[in-house]
Simulated assay, not measured.
Amino acid sequence: MIFHETILKGAFIVEPERKEDERGFFARTWSTEEYSKHGLNPKISQCSVSYNSRKGTLRGMHYQVPPHEEVKLVRCTRGAIFDVVIDLRPGSSTYTRHTSVVLTEANGLLLYIPEGVAHGYQTLEDDSEVFYQISETFHPESARGVRWDDPCFDIPWPDADRIILPRDRQYPLFTP
């Protein structure tokens, strides 16, 4: 695996190293040892999948607060997504900054999202599926979110007829 640190401290794009032959390929996407060597949290408590039938579906921007902060490792297993993370860690040198990456079934990239960083995505194709490995069990009382279109973050989302839950539309504007 090749780890590419993003502009957000502790957030990485993980590129599986494919070993190809006449059958296809084999690639590791997870290794406790490799993640630990890079100073990343190797704990996995749950895995989840999100299916999105329509292009333009926007989910986010979600995170959990202490004591249930979570790390996420995200991969698009079908279709394509525009994936975004926002640093909400007050002591971080990249506080309130965001970064994005296109994750597709074809490129096989993964996004490692550290604790205290909000996550969301918009589907770029119909029938997109996203697989999550998550360090903590979901705790509804610790779930939080920020507005996907908050001017504080100025995220350049792809144009689309968006499908968004009312909850994700109604988060308050962020005050740093």
Rank of each mutant, 00 (worst) to 15 (best):
T6K: 00
L8V: 10
L8A: 03
G10S: 02
F12G: 03
I13T: 07
I13E: 08
V14Q: 02
E15K: 09
E20A: 12
E20L: 05
E22L: 02
R23A: 04
G24K: 09
A27T: 07
A27R: 07
R28T: 09
R28K: 13
W30I: 05
W30A: 11
E33F: 11
E34S: 05
H38W: 13
H38Y: 15
G39W: 13
N41G: 13
P42I: 04
K43L: 14
I44Q: 09
S45H: 06
S48A: 09
R54H: 11
T57R: 07
T57F: 05
L58S: 06
L58T: 02
L58I: 07
R59C: 06
H62K: 14
Y63H: 13
H68D: 14
E70K: 04
K72R: 11
L73Q: 12
R75E: 05
R75P: 05
R75A: 06
R78Q: 04
R78W: 04
R78A: 02
R78D: 08
G79M: 08
G79V: 03
D83L: 12
D83R: 14
D83E: 14
V85E: 12
R89F: 14
P90R: 09
S92F: 01
T94R: 11
Y95K: 13
T96W: 01
R97H: 10
V102M: 00
L103T: 00
T104R: 05
L109F: 10
L110T: 07
L111N: 02
P114M: 12
H119G: 10
G120I: 08
G120M: 14
Y121C: 01
Y121Q: 11
Y121S: 02
L124R: 12
L124Y: 13
D126R: 15
D126E: 15
F131Y: 15
Y132S: 04
Q133D: 09
I134Q: 13
E136M: 10
T137S: 15
H139D: 08
E141C: 08
A143G: 15
A143N: 07
A143M: 11
G145H: 05
G145T: 08
W148I: 09
D149H: 09
C152H: 13
F153H: 12
F153C: 07
I155F: 11
P156W: 10
W157T: 02
P158Y: 01
P158T: 04
D159A: 06
A160D: 11
D161C: 01
R162V: 09
I164R: 00
P166V: 00
D168G: 03
D168L: 04
R169D: 00
Q170M: 11
Q170F: 04
Y171E: 12
T175Y: 01
T175L: 08
